[in-house]
Amino acid sequence: MRSVLKKSGELALLVVVFLAVVGPMASLVIWSVAQKWYWPNLLPQEISFDYWRQALGLQTSMAIGAVSIVSAFLLSLGIALATVVASMAISIPAGYALAKYKIPFGTAIMFLFLLPNAFPQQPVFVNILRIFTKAGLAGTIPGVMLIHILVGLVFGVWITSATFRAIPPSLEEAARSVGASAFVAFYRIALPLAAPGLLSSAVFVFLTSLDEFTGTFFVGLPFVNTLPLTLYSSSGYNLQFASVIALILLVPSVVFMLLIQKVLKAEYVGGMG
Protein backbone atom coordinates (compact mmCIF):
# COMPACT_ATOMS: atom_id res chain seq x y z
CA MET A 1 0.00 0.00 0.00
CA ARG A 2 2.73 2.36 1.06
CA SER A 3 4.78 1.63 -2.02
CA VAL A 4 1.75 2.15 -4.27
CA LEU A 5 1.22 5.56 -2.70
CA LYS A 6 4.90 6.34 -3.13
CA LYS A 7 4.88 5.15 -6.75
CA SER A 8 1.83 7.22 -7.65
CA GLY A 9 3.38 10.21 -5.88
CA GLU A 10 6.51 9.83 -7.95
CA LEU A 11 4.42 9.53 -11.09
CA ALA A 12 2.49 12.70 -10.27
CA LEU A 13 5.76 14.53 -9.69
CA LEU A 14 7.09 13.29 -13.01
CA VAL A 15 3.99 14.53 -14.83
CA VAL A 16 4.28 17.95 -13.20
CA VAL A 17 7.97 18.22 -14.09
CA PHE A 18 7.25 17.05 -17.60
CA LEU A 19 4.50 19.63 -18.09
CA ALA A 20 6.62 22.37 -16.56
CA VAL A 21 9.49 21.65 -18.94
CA VAL A 22 7.68 20.52 -22.03
CA GLY A 23 4.73 22.94 -21.82
CA PRO A 24 6.70 26.13 -22.42
CA MET A 25 8.94 24.37 -24.94
CA ALA A 26 5.96 23.19 -26.98
CA SER A 27 4.54 26.66 -26.89
CA LEU A 28 7.87 28.02 -28.16
CA VAL A 29 7.96 25.49 -30.97
CA ILE A 30 4.40 26.29 -32.02
CA TRP A 31 4.99 30.02 -31.89
CA SER A 32 8.14 29.70 -33.95
CA VAL A 33 6.19 28.28 -36.88
CA ALA A 34 2.92 30.19 -36.48
CA GLN A 35 2.31 32.20 -39.60
CA LYS A 36 -1.30 33.03 -38.71
CA TRP A 37 -2.77 32.37 -35.25
CA TYR A 38 -5.83 34.26 -34.12
CA TRP A 39 -8.09 33.81 -31.12
CA PRO A 40 -9.97 31.53 -30.41
CA ASN A 41 -8.07 28.86 -32.36
CA LEU A 42 -6.15 26.39 -30.23
CA LEU A 43 -3.48 25.88 -32.87
CA PRO A 44 -2.15 28.19 -35.59
CA GLN A 45 -4.28 28.35 -38.72
CA GLU A 46 -1.29 28.65 -40.95
CA ILE A 47 2.13 27.17 -40.42
CA SER A 48 5.38 28.16 -42.07
CA PHE A 49 9.09 28.01 -41.48
CA ASP A 50 9.67 31.55 -42.76
CA TYR A 51 10.84 32.80 -39.40
CA TRP A 52 13.32 29.99 -39.05
CA ARG A 53 14.66 30.72 -42.54
CA GLN A 54 14.94 34.42 -41.76
CA ALA A 55 16.62 33.72 -38.47
CA LEU A 56 19.16 31.47 -40.12
CA GLY A 57 19.78 34.05 -42.80
CA LEU A 58 18.36 31.90 -45.62
CA GLN A 59 15.71 34.46 -46.40
CA THR A 60 15.67 38.23 -46.05
CA SER A 61 13.60 39.34 -43.16
CA MET A 62 10.89 41.87 -43.72
CA ALA A 63 10.05 42.14 -40.06
CA ILE A 64 13.42 42.96 -38.56
CA GLY A 65 15.65 43.83 -41.38
CA ALA A 66 19.32 43.15 -40.90
CA VAL A 67 19.48 41.35 -37.55
CA SER A 68 21.80 38.39 -37.98
CA ILE A 69 20.99 35.48 -35.74
CA VAL A 70 23.77 33.26 -37.02
CA SER A 71 26.56 35.67 -36.19
CA ALA A 72 24.96 36.55 -32.85
CA PHE A 73 24.76 32.86 -32.05
CA LEU A 74 28.39 32.22 -32.94
CA LEU A 75 29.45 35.28 -30.96
CA SER A 76 27.52 34.14 -27.88
CA LEU A 77 28.89 30.63 -28.14
CA GLY A 78 32.46 31.90 -28.50
CA ILE A 79 32.16 34.28 -25.60
CA ALA A 80 30.58 31.56 -23.43
CA LEU A 81 33.34 29.04 -24.16
CA ALA A 82 36.10 31.58 -23.55
CA THR A 83 34.37 32.65 -20.34
CA VAL A 84 34.24 29.05 -19.13
CA VAL A 85 37.93 28.52 -19.82
CA ALA A 86 39.00 31.77 -18.14
CA SER A 87 36.65 31.41 -15.17
CA MET A 88 37.71 27.86 -14.46
CA ALA A 89 41.37 28.76 -14.85
CA ILE A 90 40.86 31.24 -12.01
CA SER A 91 38.24 29.31 -10.00
CA ILE A 92 40.12 26.03 -9.70
CA PRO A 93 43.27 27.37 -8.04
CA ALA A 94 41.35 30.02 -6.09
CA GLY A 95 38.69 27.57 -4.90
CA TYR A 96 41.34 25.00 -3.99
CA ALA A 97 43.39 27.50 -2.03
CA LEU A 98 40.33 28.79 -0.19
CA ALA A 99 39.26 25.25 0.66
CA LYS A 100 42.60 23.78 1.72
CA TYR A 101 44.67 26.52 3.22
CA LYS A 102 44.03 28.89 6.02
CA ILE A 103 44.19 32.02 3.93
CA PRO A 104 44.09 35.21 5.92
CA PHE A 105 40.70 36.85 5.34
CA GLY A 106 39.59 33.76 3.39
CA THR A 107 35.94 34.33 4.23
CA ALA A 108 36.22 37.99 3.34
CA ILE A 109 37.66 37.02 -0.05
CA MET A 110 34.77 34.63 -0.62
CA PHE A 111 32.31 37.42 0.08
CA LEU A 112 34.22 39.73 -2.21
CA PHE A 113 33.28 37.37 -5.02
CA LEU A 114 29.63 37.69 -4.03
CA LEU A 115 29.81 41.46 -3.84
CA PRO A 116 28.73 42.25 -7.42
CA ASN A 117 25.53 40.33 -6.68
CA ALA A 118 24.87 42.11 -3.41
CA PHE A 119 23.99 45.36 -5.14
CA PRO A 120 21.42 46.19 -7.78
CA GLN A 121 23.10 45.23 -11.04
CA GLN A 122 22.40 48.34 -13.07
CA PRO A 123 24.43 50.82 -10.97
CA VAL A 124 27.27 48.31 -10.74
CA PHE A 125 27.39 47.92 -14.50
CA VAL A 126 27.07 51.64 -15.11
CA ASN A 127 30.15 52.14 -12.96
CA ILE A 128 31.96 49.33 -14.73
CA LEU A 129 31.03 50.94 -18.04
CA ARG A 130 32.68 54.18 -16.87
CA ILE A 131 35.87 52.30 -16.04
CA PHE A 132 35.73 50.27 -19.26
CA THR A 133 35.21 53.37 -21.37
CA LYS A 134 38.37 54.86 -19.93
CA ALA A 135 40.22 51.61 -20.54
CA GLY A 136 38.91 51.36 -24.09
CA LEU A 137 37.04 48.15 -23.33
CA ALA A 138 33.50 49.47 -23.81
CA GLY A 139 31.78 48.03 -26.85
CA THR A 140 34.50 45.42 -27.37
CA ILE A 141 34.33 41.64 -27.20
CA PRO A 142 37.10 41.43 -24.54
CA GLY A 143 35.12 43.93 -22.49
CA VAL A 144 31.99 41.78 -22.65
CA MET A 145 34.05 38.69 -21.88
CA LEU A 146 35.49 40.38 -18.79
CA ILE A 147 31.96 41.11 -17.57
CA HIS A 148 30.91 37.52 -18.13
CA ILE A 149 34.00 36.22 -16.35
CA LEU A 150 33.24 38.48 -13.41
CA VAL A 151 29.69 37.14 -13.20
CA GLY A 152 30.89 33.56 -13.79
CA LEU A 153 33.52 33.73 -11.05
CA VAL A 154 30.84 34.27 -8.44
CA PHE A 155 29.52 30.76 -9.00
CA GLY A 156 32.81 29.32 -10.12
CA VAL A 157 34.78 30.10 -6.99
CA TRP A 158 31.98 29.18 -4.61
CA ILE A 159 31.15 25.86 -6.24
CA THR A 160 34.78 24.81 -6.74
CA SER A 161 35.80 25.68 -3.18
CA ALA A 162 32.79 23.80 -1.82
CA THR A 163 33.75 20.84 -4.02
CA PHE A 164 37.35 20.78 -2.83
CA ARG A 165 36.24 21.27 0.76
CA ALA A 166 34.16 18.08 0.49
CA ILE A 167 37.25 15.98 -0.29
CA PRO A 168 38.78 14.64 2.95
CA PRO A 169 42.30 16.06 3.38
CA SER A 170 43.50 12.58 4.33
CA LEU A 171 43.16 11.48 0.68
CA GLU A 172 45.82 13.92 -0.45
CA GLU A 173 47.89 13.29 2.66
CA ALA A 174 47.83 9.59 1.86
CA ALA A 175 49.24 10.43 -1.57
CA ARG A 176 51.94 12.62 -0.03
CA SER A 177 52.88 9.82 2.34
CA VAL A 178 53.57 7.44 -0.55
CA GLY A 179 55.82 9.93 -2.27
CA ALA A 180 53.64 12.35 -4.26
CA SER A 181 54.52 16.03 -4.16
CA ALA A 182 51.81 18.51 -3.20
CA PHE A 183 51.15 19.21 -6.87
CA VAL A 184 50.99 15.55 -7.90
CA ALA A 185 48.62 14.85 -4.99
CA PHE A 186 46.41 17.68 -6.23
CA TYR A 187 46.59 16.60 -9.85
CA ARG A 188 46.12 12.86 -9.36
CA ILE A 189 43.80 12.80 -6.34
CA ALA A 190 41.96 16.06 -5.63
CA LEU A 191 41.35 17.10 -9.24
CA PRO A 192 39.77 13.87 -10.51
CA LEU A 193 37.70 13.58 -7.35
CA ALA A 194 36.52 17.15 -7.80
CA ALA A 195 35.74 16.66 -11.49
CA PRO A 196 31.96 16.30 -11.12
CA GLY A 197 31.76 19.49 -9.07
CA LEU A 198 34.13 21.35 -11.36
CA LEU A 199 32.17 20.31 -14.45
CA SER A 200 28.86 21.36 -12.97
CA SER A 201 30.49 24.63 -12.08
CA ALA A 202 31.62 24.93 -15.72
CA VAL A 203 28.08 24.24 -16.95
CA PHE A 204 26.77 26.91 -14.67
CA VAL A 205 29.28 29.47 -15.89
CA PHE A 206 28.58 28.51 -19.51
CA LEU A 207 24.83 28.90 -19.16
CA THR A 208 25.18 32.12 -17.21
CA SER A 209 27.35 33.59 -19.95
CA LEU A 210 25.02 32.42 -22.70
CA ASP A 211 22.12 34.10 -20.91
CA GLU A 212 23.85 37.21 -19.64
CA PHE A 213 21.91 40.32 -20.57
CA THR A 214 22.33 43.28 -18.24
CA GLY A 215 26.11 43.53 -18.26
CA THR A 216 26.34 42.89 -21.98
CA PHE A 217 23.69 45.50 -22.57
CA PHE A 218 25.68 48.20 -20.79
CA VAL A 219 29.17 47.27 -21.88
CA GLY A 220 28.62 45.62 -25.23
CA LEU A 221 26.12 47.72 -27.13
CA PRO A 222 26.05 48.86 -29.79
CA PHE A 223 28.91 46.86 -31.28
CA VAL A 224 28.69 43.52 -29.48
CA ASN A 225 25.34 41.89 -30.20
CA THR A 226 24.98 38.63 -28.35
CA LEU A 227 22.02 36.32 -28.83
CA PRO A 228 20.14 37.42 -25.68
CA LEU A 229 20.46 41.07 -26.77
CA THR A 230 19.07 40.15 -30.18
CA LEU A 231 16.29 38.21 -28.50
CA TYR A 232 15.26 41.13 -26.32
CA SER A 233 15.40 43.65 -29.11
CA SER A 234 13.30 41.52 -31.43
CA SER A 235 10.79 40.15 -28.96
CA GLY A 236 9.09 43.51 -28.63
CA TYR A 237 7.37 43.28 -31.97
CA ASN A 238 7.69 39.71 -33.15
CA LEU A 239 6.80 36.81 -30.92
CA GLN A 240 7.57 34.25 -33.62
CA PHE A 241 11.05 35.54 -34.14
CA ALA A 242 11.68 35.62 -30.40
CA SER A 243 10.58 32.00 -30.15
CA VAL A 244 13.05 30.99 -32.81
CA ILE A 245 15.91 32.71 -30.96
CA ALA A 246 14.85 31.22 -27.64
CA LEU A 247 14.92 27.75 -29.17
CA ILE A 248 18.32 28.36 -30.73
CA LEU A 249 19.60 29.55 -27.32
CA LEU A 250 18.54 26.23 -25.87
CA VAL A 251 20.62 24.20 -28.31
CA PRO A 252 24.11 24.85 -26.91
CA SER A 253 22.85 24.47 -23.35
CA VAL A 254 21.40 21.07 -24.06
CA VAL A 255 24.42 19.94 -26.08
CA PHE A 256 26.80 21.11 -23.35
CA MET A 257 24.84 19.33 -20.64
CA LEU A 258 24.68 16.08 -22.60
CA LEU A 259 28.40 16.27 -23.26
CA ILE A 260 29.18 16.83 -19.58
CA GLN A 261 26.92 14.00 -18.59
CA LYS A 262 28.76 11.72 -20.98
CA VAL A 263 32.11 12.74 -19.61
CA LEU A 264 30.90 12.25 -16.04
CA LYS A 265 29.53 8.80 -16.80
CA ALA A 266 32.75 7.70 -18.44
CA GLU A 267 35.03 9.04 -15.70
CA TYR A 268 32.89 8.08 -12.80
CA VAL A 269 30.89 4.94 -12.71
CA GLY A 270 28.53 6.06 -10.02
CA GLY A 271 30.48 8.88 -8.43
CA MET A 272 32.61 9.02 -5.36
CA GLY A 273 32.96 6.85 -2.31
Binding site: L171, A174, S177, V178, G179
Partner: peptide
Protein backbone atom coordinates in the same frame (compact mmCIF):
# COMPACT_ATOMS: atom_id res chain seq x y z
CA UNK B 1 61.78 17.41 5.32
CA UNK B 2 58.46 17.35 3.37
CA UNK B 3 56.11 14.37 4.01
CA UNK B 4 56.76 12.70 0.64
CA UNK B 5 60.48 12.43 1.34
CA UNK B 6 60.29 10.93 4.84
CA UNK B 7 59.81 7.29 3.86
CA UNK B 8 56.95 6.88 6.31
CA UNK B 9 53.95 4.63 5.69
CA UNK B 10 50.61 5.90 6.99
CA UNK B 11 47.36 4.14 7.83
CA UNK B 12 44.47 6.49 8.48
CA UNK B 13 41.51 6.00 10.75
CA UNK B 14 39.09 6.45 7.85
CA UNK B 15 41.39 4.37 5.57
CA UNK B 16 41.71 7.23 3.05
CA UNK B 17 41.71 4.91 0.06
CA UNK B 18 41.39 6.77 -3.22
CA UNK B 19 37.79 6.19 -4.28
CA UNK B 20 38.44 6.71 -7.99
Amino acid sequence: IPPEKRGIGLVFQNYALWPH
